[in-house]
Design a protein around this nucleic acid. Structure first.
Lengths: 245, 245
DNA sequence: CCGGCGTCGATTGTATACAGCGTATTCAAT
DNA sequence: ATTGAATACGCTGTATACAATCGACGCCGG
């Protein structure tokens, strides 16, 4: 059932590539295609943010019509956003019944840590020769920020900086799709991360030491060692979480 | 708009339900919750199948209204399906303009092989102690099927069996979410896999030898070695693809 | 007390209608 | 000839309306 749209009179010659760069060097501005912002996208981001921030707890219901009414839009874009969130694993849609926020079982949790360990290590192995001095500086700054926030008892800020630290680690690899997977896995765990830190009351000191290992390896230009270090870091984080629960 | 509850009291006509299986001993059947099948799901599977099988080539347009008309449904479920396919990377939605089938750049391709290598290796490492003799037999059978199909010149069948071989490798790990990621990555590459094999006319002989390595390691119970072997296999497959292109 | 049965209300699923955007075409102005 | 505005058309985006389904409640007869 190929969509044969042979009924249009004029064959619209669609350029294979968007061909944004005309002649002038407008390339650097508008690197992104400058897409239109649809209500569906807004709804998606709205709900996703709420999910990641833990404002919607696992098991809780999401009523499309209520969301739509609150946002002043119709249900259609909300439903579409929910479909996308379902395919990302954030919610579960029970047809004709309801939409509930997905949780993670103990097993799924463990699996996610394994996944992240493997992918973070891949990122660092692939980062060989791509690490700019400025990046190292930024990583150092983030590491310092975590330390400061931790000592100040500002757990939320420490967690936030930790997230930025890791994202930066991923991104030096230049592996965009891997980063996207990692980001998604990370975000789905965010709820539990917040819970855990609230429960133990502080950001783990061991975590800082492990970051230090990674940084040292990177500064020495030894990405293989850094990869092993980040893998250990992730697996230990898993154990820490397990014992907190 | 408050929900008007002036629900008319029409006696619903009840138009002859699809007559589900009569009340038999439905205990063991229907172990799965038997979710309702929505049009959106059907549309999703329909389009996804067409994409994976290469009936829709990258760059080609997908017109929601045409698909809907062909399927005899409205555009809404089709649009929802397309949203899901977009979040999985299969298509790209240009708001108010069109929906096009996504391709993969050379870089993205390479990245996907790295991703698969890392995850397949993870699966095999995690498979330690979970490999039933029956599984090994099935793997052997698939390996044999690939060989037979290859010698018979039935490339399509060899490719299909190769896919089943790998999926089985993944599944012994029991890591469902990782398997899902792998499946998605694999499926998105299916189009190119078909193209490549059509171009070179046969299934690679080296691939069989590399499978053999994996199998030998598994039969010896050495999952670590199997993990290394599958990683090599994947990276060599990447090189083979590169030189074919 | 209890189990079947019908109804109701809540919620999602889908069709239809229309609005809005993007692109090509046309045509006037420079 | 090139540029710019106006227009037409195809497509997607969204609102509204209605249908289908599920779960709960209550009625009723045992």
């Amino acid at each position: 059932m190929p969509p044969r749209t042979a009924r249009s009179r004029r064959p619209r010659p669609r350029p294979a590539a968007p061909a944004p760069a005309r002649q002038a060097d407008a390339g650097s501005l508008f690197a992104a295609p400058l897409r239109h912002r649809t209500l569906e996208e807004l709804a998606y981001e709205h709900i996703r943010t709420a999910l990641v921030q833990g404002k919607l707890a696992p098991g809780q219901r999401i009523v499309a019509s209520a969301v739509a009414r609150a946002a002043g839009i119709s249900r259609i874009p909300v439903l579409q956003a929910l479909r996308r969130l379902e395919s990302e694993g954030f919610v579960r849609i029970n047809p004709h019944r309801d939409v509930v926020v997905s949780g993670l079982s103990r097993e799924e949790f463990r699996e996610r840590f394994l996944l992240m360990a493997a992918l973070e290590a891949l990122c660092l192995r692939e980062a060989d020769g791509k690490i700019a001095p400025a990046t190292l500086q930024q990583l150092r700054a983030l590491q310092a920020e975590i330390g400061v926030a931790r000592r100040a008892g500002d757990t939320a800020r420490a967690v936030s900086a930790d997230g930025r630290f890791h994202r930066m680690l991923w991104e030096v690899s230049g592996l965009r799709q891997v980063v996207q997977v990692l980001q998604n896995v990370w975000d789905r765990g965010e709820y539990y991360r917040v819970i855990m830190h609230a429960r133990r009351g502080s950001f783990a000191a061991e975590s800082l030491a492990e970051h230090e290992e990674i940084l040292k390896a990177l500064e020495a230009g030894d990405t293989a060692r850094a990869a092993r270090a980040v893998e250990r870091h992730r697996l230990r984080a898993m154990e820490r979480l397990a014992e907190t629960t």
